[in-house]
Design a protein around this nucleic acid. Structure first.
Lengths: 211, 211
DNA sequence: CTTTACAAACCGTCTAGTCGGTTTTATAAA
DNA sequence: TTTATAAAACCGACTAGACGGTTTGTAAAG
């Protein structure tokens, strides 16, 4: 095997091992020795591929972000044709993917946060763009943000073992979040101040979307 | 000072110190020596009150849970008179509190997760009951769960520094989540299960999209 | 022959937990 | 109140091991 492939194989083995450890034992147990043990490499081998532990976390974070982009890009292409809010739909579907994948990106995020909070800047910047895109396409930006927040809440709950929602229920909730037609009842135009007390005109105000 | 008070004072000092350290330096920096330094106690004093580090985390988690119950109980009493979904309203308001409090329960949760994921069982059990109560009172349980999930998403995003939502926007979103009148447009009756006696059974098997 | 990938022993530091000893509080007999 | 004794709270030096990272050595690729 040539050197490039050999290196990549080792790097991936190390990152896979890191994910497995975080998922199984928690981010506090992620050590370089543990990575070496779990991956089958020696510690020297790991350190040859990553000069520091922080480099491992950074690489892990970047790899996971790439993977989710590989999922979201084709999804977005399809969603643009089918959905009223393709950016929101893409984000929700991607987050659903993260919730269902056993070794998700969010685990990497958690480990990064523990070790070095600065690493969070990477996903945060990407989030900023996502949020802007979601708001830009929405008739009711706040409602869009709430759908986005709900997706995140479901994912983080599942990931951290916090919310004990069974899988089928989670799937059902994600499906409802994704379905634009289920949210038209309460959209409020972007620029109007809150009309809490007034006549809400709940049912039919939604038809004037782009149809 | 009598022994009981002295002990409690020391225990609280240690837990306060732990929270401060997590908030300031991150959960990775939480060590027994750091707790001793920050609290003014000696290492031996800390170890006398808590036999292991895990015991510290457990006590911290439990204390924070109690505190949030102290917030939520009177809120629930008021909400029962004012809201259609008092359990949901209470939970959303409590989660908002956690998002805004500088030394939140969620920090303790984070530290526990890092050190020993098994400790998450404590809040998980409490969550189970909350979820059941929210569903029981809802005309549209899935929608209620989504409002609940959105609140969690907002809180966790703020906590982890993940979502860069500015404070006023977060407040606005929480307010909308809390306001029952804003969610009536899309409620769907609970699926045919005897949740509420005498509830008019939904036509057909499922929640079909509204035309 | 040079460079790259990996192995394994090793180093200094940090951390959880221990231990013998000291001070403070509790109990109660004188 | 005083004094004797025990128990609980507290201290800080110490230890064994884990940790991130380095160094030295070896085999394969180029």
């Amino acid at each position: 095997m040539d050197n490039a492939s050999r290196s990549e194989r080792s790097r991936n083995a190390a990152l896979d091992a890191a994910l497995a450890i975080i998922a199984r034992d928690g981010p506090g147990r992620l050590t370089l020795d543990a990575i070496a043990r779990e991956s089958g490499l020696s510690k020297g081998g790991v350190m040859h591929q990553f000069r520091t532990k922080e480099a491992v976390l950074k690489a892990l974070l970047e790899r996971q972000m790439v993977r989710f982009e590989e999922f979201s890009t084709p999804y977005r292409a399809k969603a643009r044709a089918e959905s009223e809010n393709p950016e929101l739909a893409t984000e929700i579907a991607t987050v659903r993917e993260a919730a269902n994948a056993p070794n998700s990106a969010a685990l990497a995020l958690l480990a990064a946060m523990v070790e070095n909070p600065d690493l969070m800047a990477l996903p945060r910047d990407s989030d900023l763009k996502t949020i802007a895109a979601i708001k830009a396409e929405a008739t009711d930006p706040d409602l869009a943000m709430l759908r986005w927040a709900a997706a995140r809440g479901l994912m983080l709950g599942a990931l951290f073992g916090m919310s004990p929602l069974p899988r089928p229920e989670r799937d059902r909730l994600f499906a409802r979040l994704l379905d634009d037609s289920q949210w038209h009842g309460l959209e409020k135009p972007a620029r109007s101040r809150s009309l809490k007390a007034g006549a809400p005109a709940a049912k039919g105000t939604s038809a004037r979307k782009r149809a």
